[in-house]
Design a binder for these strands. Structure first.
Lengths: 246, 246
DNA sequence: CAAGATTTGTTCGTATGTATA
DNA sequence: CTATACATACGAACAAATCTT
């Protein structure tokens, strides 16, 4: 009955002996040429020649690669190897969030759950690393958050910088990017869905400070507590919108 | 100094007052029409008319949406709303893995680290859920793994089904998909990079059984141990290839 | 500042391959 | 087998953005 895996969505459509798609051929070209992020790609006419296809085809393939952040195209300037960020994940999840809006905020709740899980999972290592590499700029960020909250403004920049700084201790680039990607999801989605931050957002600021205190004291349990507290206001906003369930 | 966020890669290029891109307009069309995964999209000529753009532009936008799994196009049949899977994440990470191959297997190591972190993070909840919903098909899967190993074959199907079944207990669709996506990465990447599984792959099979035993006994610590042991052979393969560092 | 060269963005018309009825 | 509807591919022309001279 398991004739077709059927789980593999579209990526695994490589029957091995089939003709490589144009997207793959361009990927191979990047690798063969030894290009890295930021390096400029051949121009479209050049690619048409080298690959023996029309410009329309090259352009469609480039769009695919651009949406995966494998290339980055700048109008009137050229095409460059992209940064291989997780922006496609962000784009996909943002659309998913818009899609099941009206029903509930399921996607956003799940994103927050994963952020919590990730933060808790790296807590041990973070405490250890922080011992060797304290980060003197972090308290200033927390103060800035408080200041901006007092002004009635958001503190997205500071929040992003705070978490990015902590994650940078981990020597795992993918975790950093995943964290940033998930952070982006609700930072972009909530305002876009017209959902205002709750009043107890100040608790979030305090939780940031508590996280720093726990790190300075090398107290893993306290850090875990602070992380959970840190997400509580956000969770409250999301749960309060929990409505119809099919 | 923070004039431009500049951290936002490409997704957030929405100065709010700028003309919505064609991709966004098609996304809006899907949402406005109330379409869901599997529903058929308007045909290309129809979209050209409704959106007032040429066929090529529609096609390029569709390619972008297809690579994000927001639409799925079936040759000669039509275009349909996609499943919103995490296939773009898989595609991007697979390319990244190919890119820093030759240097080291950094990306794959990071993927495994995240899988471990996720599995450990959900251990508590998993044990709890398993108490209420034991899954009688799982031991059979482990036996099948052992049988296939004895035949010298891989057990990708069984492994995938095993982890998918466990994750399905969690009531967090995103975690399931993330787990499956990361699983796909090294399952696809390792053979593609010509790296053979290590001899001690049998330990992985045993670890699967240990995971089940721990779940049946509702022993969280034992489950955590088994999870870690489960990844050890894979980690060994990846660490052994650690070579040049720039 | 201005003109021109380069490069990507958009459009049209046409022909071809593929799945369904 | 034929017909129809659909996606796929191509090539040429023009538009718009960017950089250089």
């Amino acid at each position: 009955m398991t004739a077709q895996p059927s789980s593999a969505p579209r990526s695994a459509q490589r029957p091995d002996r089939a003709a490589p798609t144009l997207v793959q051929r361009i990927e191979d070209l990047i690798l063969d040429e030894g290009l890295g992020p930021g390096d400029s790609m051949p121009t479209e006419p050049e690619l048409c020649e080298r690959l023996g296809v029309s410009r329309s085809s090259v352009r469609e393939a480039m769009r695919t690669l651009a949406s995966l952040d494998i290339v980055e195209v700048r109008h009137g300037h050229g095409t460059f190897v992209g940064r291989l960020s997780l922006s496609p994940l962000v784009d996909g999840l943002l659309f998913r969030a818009r899609m099941n809006h009206g029903n509930d905020l399921r996607t956003l709740r799940e994103v927050v759950q994963i952020r919590i899980a990730l933060d808790l999972a790296v807590a041990d290592e973070l405490v250890e690393r922080y011992r060797d590499t304290p980060m003197p700029e972090l308290p200033g960020l927390v103060d800035a958050m408080r200041a901006r909250t007092a002004e009635g403004k958001g503190f997205a920049e500071e929040d992003s910088a705070f978490h990015a700084a902590l994650m940078s201790l981990l020597d795992n680039e993918l975790v950093q990017q995943l964290g940033h990607a998930f952070w982006q999801i609700h930072t972009i989605a909530l305002p876009a869905l017209g959902i205002a931050p709750s009043r107890d957002i100040l608790d979030t600021v305090d939780a940031h400070r508590a996280m720093l205190d726990a790190l300075a004291a090398a107290d893993v349990d306290a850090y875990r507590e602070a992380v959970i507290a840190h997400y509580r206001p956000l969770q409250r906003v999301l749960e309060s919108r929990e409505s119809v369930r099919a």
